[in-house]
Design a protein around this nucleic acid. Structure first.
Lengths: 131, 131
DNA sequence: CATAAGGCTTCCATTCACTGGAAGGTCAAG
DNA sequence: CTTGACCTTCCAGTGAATGGAAGCCTTATG
């Protein structure tokens, strides 16, 4: 398979696939003409990576997950710990965004939004933080 | 005031303040020795920027907000539209993270997390997307 | 007066995970 | 033979800083 084929099948852009080779996540063979030649196992890895990335795992996490996946003697505890750690980060990020959201939606509601300059949003921004 | 003073007072790192000058958000004067000389108005702008950034506004949004803030004849509708747009992005991001969170926490719960290799998290990642 | 500590300057590189684009080689169809 | 779709590499840019090196400037102390 050429890169266009695995791109279609994995749903990843060809650029991204080349990048993944660059950073050593996959190591496709080369044909005589220099084209990358992908095997089923490469495609499988790429799909795995795409799914892991869509769950928000970092590239380094993906590297670890791939290694665990291929290690037949892995402990599921290791996978779970990694996922749990990522989940914690997601939760922290959601909490942070929720905080922004609450503050901002309050301000947006308070702003009458007409052609007058008076604006509670700008007033808040101009006010020293009250943490 | 030197950069260290405004850094302390605004809560922003000196590096960040220099960067803000670089991209034209502030334009402090210079003393004879080459040091940046900040005025009260610069400090005020920096605090404004810090607060806006903490609400997640992009640098370009901050630039616009600052311009609106300084435009005495602004329409509050313009500020509100910008904030509303940002709020939409926050909501989209929260929804995306919440989706990741739901999927991942389900998987984490399903993983027994012991020393056996069997793992529903890896099984999910190895499964083609079902979108 | 010398020196040491701390503050200031600029400039360059790095982060993360791609993405865009240029310049050029390869291949199959008409 | 040419067109167009692929493929290749390499370089640069994204956002928003952050880290570090090399080298002035200032202030306090011995």
């Amino acid at each position: 398979m050429n890169i266009g084929d695995v791109a279609r099948l994995s749903g990843l852009p060809a650029k991204t696939i080349r990048y993944y080779e660059d950073i050593g996540l996959i190591t496709p063979k080369r044909a005589e003409n220099g084209y990358r030649r992908f095997r089923e196992s490469d495609l499988h890895k790429l799909s795995f990576l795409g799914r892991a990335r869509s769950l928000g795992f970092s590239i380094e996490d993906c590297r670890t997950l791939l290694a665990l996946y291929e290690d037949q003697s892995r402990a599921s505890a290791d996978v779970k710990a990694l996922a749990r750690g990522h989940l914690n980060k997601i939760e922290a990020k959601i909490a942070e965004l929720q905080q922004m959201h609450d503050t901002l939606s309050h301000l947006v509601k308070a702003c009458h939004g007409d052609d007058r300059p008076d604006c509670p949003i700008l007033a808040d921004l101009a006010t020293p933080a009250e943490t």
